[in-house]
Design a protein around this nucleic acid. Sequence first.
DNA 1: TCTGGCACTCGGCACACGGGAGTGCCAGCG
DNA 2: CGCTGGCACTCCCGTGTGCCGAGTGCCAGA
Lengths: 338, 338
Amino acid sequence: MLSERRLEVLRAIVQDYVGTEEPVGSKALTERHRLGVSPATVRNDMAALEDEGYIAQPHTSAGRIPTDKGYRLFVDKLAGVKPMTAPERRAIQNFLDGAVDLDDVVGRTVRLLAQLTRQVAVVQYPSLTRSTVRHVELLSLAPARVMLVLITDTGRVEQRMINCPVPFGETSLADLRARLNSRVAGRPFADVPQLVQDLPDAFEAEDRGTVSTVLSTLLETLVEETEERLMIGGTANLTRFGHDFPLTIRPVLEALEEQVVLLKLLGEAGDSSMTVRIGHENAYEGLNSTSVVSVGYGSGGEAVAKLGVVGPTRMDYPGTMGAVRAVARYVGQILAES
Amino acid sequence: MLSERRLEVLRAIVQDYVGTEEPVGSKALTERHRLGVSPATVRNDMAALEDEGYIAQPHTSAGRIPTDKGYRLFVDKLAGVKPMTAPERRAIQNFLDGAVDLDDVVGRTVRLLAQLTRQVAVVQYPSLTRSTVRHVELLSLAPARVMLVLITDTGRVEQRMINCPVPFGETSLADLRARLNSRVAGRPFADVPQLVQDLPDAFEAEDRGTVSTVLSTLLETLVEETEERLMIGGTANLTRFGHDFPLTIRPVLEALEEQVVLLKLLGEAGDSSMTVRIGHENAYEGLNSTSVVSVGYGSGGEAVAKLGVVGPTRMDYPGTMGAVRAVARYVGQILAES
DNA sequence: TCTGGCACTCGGCACACGGGAGTGCCAGCG
DNA sequence: CGCTGGCACTCCCGTGTGCCGAGTGCCAGA
């Protein structure tokens, strides 16, 4: 177990390195922090921290920088979450209020989060399968052409075109619409497959094919993995990463374009509590030099989706965590109101 | 006026520079192209081209690189549009087919375009105001809560929540829905304001307030500038820009995040024909070292939106233009089918 | 267990140097 | 009059050298 002072040294190293982006040496440490001991002592502590794998030297005779393990310890034991100041909280609220629809909410959130953290922001749309059905609408656009519209309590709206095998009468359509809604409205989307299973039986033989087509389209829309969507923003902040660009930034941009990768990343994180994944803790190779801070958000108690930021492992963890948590909280409120 | 040979020299310079990314000298030129003259002669031609402002030297005693004016001449007079090969055309079609909704179409298009051109792709959603109304739906979600859903012939669906001043009966709602659709279905969105102007008059006094609220929400969604949306992709290709990253890439990423800037950029381009804006021809400063190739696309004859790519001024113009044109054509087809 | 001292290591920078690619100019040739 | 080969000149750039400073590890002493 590391002594109290050694932990203090580690904390100082992390803070300084995050601030200066340069390896920090023993002398500079004693000057900037009141450790109460001499550089030589700090050097011994640093040697011990290095033995334990918390810090490392980029080159012999250079200062130390924290390793992923070092950041992990810092986040778990040495740092808290820095709460937002009152003006910041007000700014968040102002910025998010006045969104006209869900796209707007998500868009504003992603911009806000990118600006607050000066990093790349990722916001997942509320998951269909974790939301509740508000309404299912069927519109007849042409004799054998139906549009299916799903509306969730979180404001998300999905639509699908359906080509019916045979023309579908307006009364049958109204019948199906009414039956569908009476079964599923107010229920979680996850239950929908069960709830509509035997619906075709209630219809005349000639309509059954069409009803089945509609239902299977409905179920397809709910398949996890395809129904998940997200928005990212603040990629310009990647340019603040470091000086050795091309190699650092490239894989990150590529990862961000692969929505599958991001969704997996968010999916792996704890369900609603805040999760920090540091460097190599991220399964995806391109993100091995980044950290991901994410948290679930939702209109009520349960999380319907996640949001977070992607930044260099060398990031201000307490500040970032504070911003992410605060934004998630306010977005949840907005969704609950809509 | 420049002689035939000098134009040929300019063409050779552009082609070589685009290929190698390095200033091209007189000797290298004569070696790679059959110009039929000696380096000394080419030197004289280059001096003339430089006097006219078509090419420039990064430093004394270095090769020449094309200026924006040089690229302009190249695009206008010296190069055509390189048509896609048959396999490429097939690949495009395969890639775009099977999209389930408009978001999917736009998403696939942006990825496709980024991949084909190896540059940043930008695709605008079909403009509401330039589309035709397919259907307007009103859903009663709560006694004084109505959801407005607009559906265009291009597959776009917009929705807005409306809080009614007074509860709105189901029959009044059905009445309004029917009247609305009979007036606007099949008409261009641009005409909607005119068409619905006197609608409140047809209702009882108590409902008139609500009807007006619904109509004003409808009109708000049609305001140009707010209704325009777009998707971008392929930002990872920016890393191929050059070696002097931070300065080049940063403002471009920033511009791409400012949807307003991009929309303006696309808006300024010719309405449906292909437009190439080179370097400083772009009004936005951050894009002064990039070229934008854009073209309108639409389901029928008229363009309902634009798509294009953003890349370094040093780009393969014929190939890029070919890809952009081909993709626009296929997207138009897909939209017409849906 | 901490401290001050000391020798050592190594990255980064400033500087000088030379090679090479490219240029402009000029005189001569068809 | 236009094209060509030759020539002197200009710079960019990569390489090599030397120095400085920050940082380290180790050791003897308090």
